[in-house]
Design a protein around this nucleic acid. Structure first.
Length: 872
RNA sequence: GCCCGGGUGGCGAAAUCGGUAGACGCAAGGGACUUAAAAUCCCUCGGGGGCAACCCCAUGCCGGUUCGAGUCCGGCCCCGGGCACCA
């Protein structure tokens, strides 16, 4: 029965074995070195996709490899179970999100199990379980106590038809993606987490993460966006004082305090309080402010807008000259950065320049570049205008170079109480309120008498009712009195429960901590977290390079400061796997849209020597389709490959082998049906090689005792492949080349024909090495083959084999001979030959002699054991 | 606009510290087995020249450093990604 490889039977047997023996359930063991291998938890969308298969296979290979290296390996799995798709599914088929989500989890868990991942399922969690999200609520209350969580009015995209907040991605050309209604910017109260309090540490600690890809660290650093500059206060002129009926000053932040004498206007955001006051008696200004506040809050859209503005008629005074400067409302000033106001220096800032040109504002140059590249600032804009240089026309500060000018101006401002040096971050506080049903309730109560009252700890968790189904008309919690009606914990009076839920990024910010103690009912985490954390290897998509990874780092630091644990950087090593790509085929529809066809159903055909592609529509019609290149597998472009079909046809090992072999993990992976066939072919070849070998009985002798040249050569090949796989998996994380080494070794076994007892022992050893070294990648087939090779113990419990250095030693080595750097011959020499011997032998070579051609040898460079270059 | 990656056969890729460019796999072509097909096995497979031994060219383009460059340096072209009026 073993003659034919039957993946379904082989995989069932191996998986049964692991399950029966609870192979992957782990416990803390102070005596063993731990290895926490974590893959990003999936959203339970319904079915696994290839991205999941790739992600979890990478994690599983590392987990199994480390297990063989003797480490106490934790590889958990859970579900990022709250979120929008469940609500959308509820709207289209009237199923409560809870039921839809839990059904999906059931199904996807069985899919994960069919792939044979070595997961400790006893630690599984779902973020929609009250036993999990109660601790979101608990920590939120601690943050509230510390002032890290706070309430503030925030600007959101508001869909007036659905009565709901839209994420930026849900706003398409200014309209709601579902309703098509014009989206409004609306200010609503939201809860924020003060991540900016940790900006400095989040930035600085990136240097302590050598195991992270450089580009992820750069992306985070850019996102945090640290700027050194000055805060400058421009005192209100009398007109502003009376309009606001207050004394005071308009504050701005600038990185170019040296250009302070070049200010010709002030620009404030439409949301700035002064803009609101100024527009009250000015309908035209009010209309402009209104226009600015409508439309997308997406910054990429804002960035491409024309610079527009309108004067307020109000003024401030220059902090040094005392001259009045008019305040303008400008659409390019962001309320959410700095002070929501800027000093307009058109001569030295491109945006201010554009604005001044459009509005006929004065341009005053106050910096001369060191190269003297320009004298007068005039249109068109020249990038040199914004270069650092020597201050001119700047009163007492004239003649100073950038740094000195900033120092002197900052000091002078500070003396007058009109400014100071300050660091500004681009990072904003994290707004976590979502006007959504399917999420973790925010544990607050609004009382008419007591105001905002936290839910007492003993009343946690605030349970989310699971029987509701949104219908598109806003958050159903708002229409469920049983949820929102409550008593105020302070005064006992009638009160209203907060109906907003938390951003799902909250859920995924600490799940990796909870895996260490999922059964802990009394605390968020316990002492087990100290054993397992930090995560040794984290694996996930590059799309989480900023938000998820930054939030998790922040959350960890908050928990450290609350002394819940000592760890302050959660992920020691990070591997960001590339996307899985497939071909895209589509045709235009009569409505001018595109209709996409799955590549599996596309038939290529040659017509008059031109390649054309055809597909069949759901109506059974044959249509001609266009090839659209490669793209990420996605629903919208209908180019996904269902892992389930792949496993049914070829088995999980083939799916795993293909995804690991086709490209290195960080790079994109191009789907190839032929490549899958190739992976399957290799597994069958390995299967028959082992069975053919053992059919002749197990050899008695030891491989190390072989004396034949071919035997020694195969031993060398086997140990060389093993050394390569050890380094490739363990250090380089290049699984494709480790697999190639295994294939090469199997090819060598195929060519090997020494049927003597010694030869068979060497062959046996080589097959054992292949089985062991590939077992992390194709664990099921290796489980079967290891038993076939005569072993009692399961391969999963075997240690990683040691390289026999003695087997790698060669008696003779091949030298490449170059003449003037060009390859001219090869010579075989005894290992350890001295330079002179190498040189003599090289010059004696006929081919080499031809190219030396009697010319005097000027130089000969010898790379021991490898190469000699003769320079003539 | 700024900041990262990356350009190597027909294709996915390899070459890890400056030392034999193209390992491994896919596709293709040829052959064996077969009534036939599939599967399997063997051979060829960057381009050009040569009867052959071999030679020349070739890692996006131009230049440089070096005995020697896919790899290092300078300049450009193209592709992908991130951020994007951040004052």
């Amino acid at each position: 029965m073993d003659e034919i490889y039957d993946p379904a039977a082989v995989e069932r047997a191996a998986q049964d074995y692991w399950e029966r023996h609870r192979t992957f359930e782990v416990r803390e063991d102070a005596g063993r070195q731990k290895y926490y291998c974590l893959s990003m938890l999936p959203y339970p969308s319904g079915r696994l996709h290839m991205g999941h298969v790739r992600n979890y296979t990478i994690g599983d290979v590392l987990a199994r490899f480390m297990r063989m290296q003797g480490r106490n390996v934790l590889q958990p799995m859970g579900w990022d179970a709250f979120g929008l798709p469940a609500e959308n599914a509820a709207m289209s088929n009237r199923v409560p999100p809870a039921r839809w989500t839990r059904q999906n989890i059931e199904y996807m868990r069985s899919q994960l199990k069919s792939l044979g991942f070595g997961i400790d399922w006893s630690r599984e969690l779902a973020t929609c379980d009250p036993s999990y999200y109660r601790w979101n609520q608990w920590l939120f209350l601690r943050m509230l106590e510390k002032g890290i969580a706070y309430r503030k009015t925030g600007v959101v995209n508001w869909d007036p038809v659905d009565q709901t907040v839209l994420a930026n991605e849900q706003v398409i050309e200014g309209r709601g993606w579902r309703t098509g209604a014009l989206v409004e910017k609306r200010e609503i109260p939201m809860y924020y987490l003060d991540i900016t309090r940790y900006a400095e540490e989040l930035l600085g600690d990136l240097e302590r993460l050598p195991g992270w890809p450089e580009r992820v660290k750069v992306m985070q650093a850019n996102w945090i966006g640290r700027s050194e500059g000055c805060e400058i206060a421009f005192p209100y002129a009398p007109d502003t004082r009376s309009a606001l009926s207050a004394d005071g000053a308009l504050k701005v932040f600038t990185t170019r305090a040296d250009t302070l004498f070049g200010v010709t206007f002030m620009a404030i955001a439409a949301e700035h309080p002064i803009a609101l006051t100024a527009s009250s008696g000015n309908p035209r200004l009010a209309a402009f402010v209104d226009e600015c506040r409508r439309g997308s809050v997406m910054e990429a859209d804002v960035a491409t807008q024309d610079k527009k503005g309108m004067p307020t008629g109000l003024h401030v005074l220059h902090p040094f000259t005392g001259k009045p400067i008019e305040i303008w409302v400008a659409n390019y000033v962001l309320m959410s950065y700095g002070e929501g106001a800027v000093m307009g220096v058109p001569a030295h800032d491109e945006r201010d320049f554009e604005f001044a040109l459009k509005n006929n504002l004065r341009i005053a140059a106050v910096v001369r570049s060191k190269t003297g590249a320009y004298e007068h600032v005039q249109a068109p804009w020249n990038p040199a205008y914004s270069e650092y240089g020597i201050s001119v026309d700047s009163g007492e500060f004239s003649g100073l170079e950038f740094r000195a000018a900033v120092d002197a101006i900052a000091a002078a401002l500070e003396k007058r109480g009109l400014g100071r040096r300050r660091i500004q971050y681009r990072l904003r506080d994290w707004g976590i309120s979502r006007q959504r049903y399917w999420g973790c309730p925010i544990p607050l109560i609004h009382c008419g008498r007591c105001g905002e009252v936290p839910v007492p700890d003993e009343q946690l968790p605030v349970l989310l009712p699971e029987d509701l189904a949104p219908d598109g008309s806003g958050n159903p919690l708002n229409k469920t009195p049983a949820f929102y009606q409550c008593v105020c914990p302070k005064c006992g009076g009638a009160a209203r429960r907060e109906t907003d839920t938390m951003d799902t990024f909250v859920d995924s910010s600490w799940y990796y901590l909870r895996y260490t103690c999922p059964d802990q009912a009394r605390a968020m985490v316990d002492e087990r977290v100290a054993y397992w954390l930090p995560v040794d290897q984290y694996i996930g998509g590059i799309e989480h390079a900023i938000l998820h990874l930054l939030y998790s780092r922040f959350w960890t630091k908050v928990m450290r400061d609350l002394t819940l644990m000592a760890c302050d950087e959660p992920f020691t090593n990070l591997l960001t796997q590339g996307m899985v790509l497939n071909h895209i085929y589509s045709c235009a529809t009569t409505e001018g849209r595109r209709r996409y066809f799955n590549p599996a159903g596309v038939r290529p055909r040659s017509e008059n020597g031109v390649d054309i592609f055809e597909a069949t529509t759901t109506e059974g019609e044959t249509v001609r389709v266009e090839y659209g290149g490669l793209g990420k597998m996605s629903k919208s472009e209908n180019n996904g490959v269902d892992p389930e079909g792949l496993i049914a046809r070829f088995g999980a090992d083939t799916a795993r082998l293909f995804t690991m072999f086709a490209s290195p993990p960080e790079q994109t992976l191009e789907w190839s049906d032929e490549g899958v066939q190739g992976a399957s072919r290799f597994i069958r070849r390995l299967w028959s090689a082992v069975h053919e070998h053992v059919r002749q009985g197990l050899p008695a002798g030891a491989a190390a005792g072989t004396s034949s040249d071919v035997g020694k050569a195969l031993r060398r090949a086997a140990h060389h492949a093993l050394a390569k796989a050890t380094d490739d998996i363990g250090r380089r994380r290049n699984f494709n080349t480790a697999i190639a080494a295994g294939m090469e070794l199997l090819n060598a076994v195929g060519r090997f024909d020494d049927a003597s007892e010694g030869g068979r022992a060497v062959q046996h050893e080589a097959l054992e090495i292949i089985t062991l070294m590939l077992s992390p990648i194709i664990p099921h087939v290796c489980h079967a083959l290891w038993h076939a090779l005569g072993h009692e113990r399961a391969v999963v419990d075997e240690p990683w084999p040691a390289v026999d250095e003695g087997a790698l030693v060669q008696d003779t080595v091949e030298y490449v001979v170059q003449v003037n750097g060009k390859l001219r011959g090869r010579i075989r020499l005894a290992a350890g030959s001295d330079e002179n011997t190498v040189r003599q032998a090289a010059l004696a070579d006929e081919q080499v002699a031809r190219f030396v051609d009697g010319k005097p040898v000027r130089k000969a460079i010898v790379v021991p054991g490898k190469l000699i270059n003769i320079v003539v």
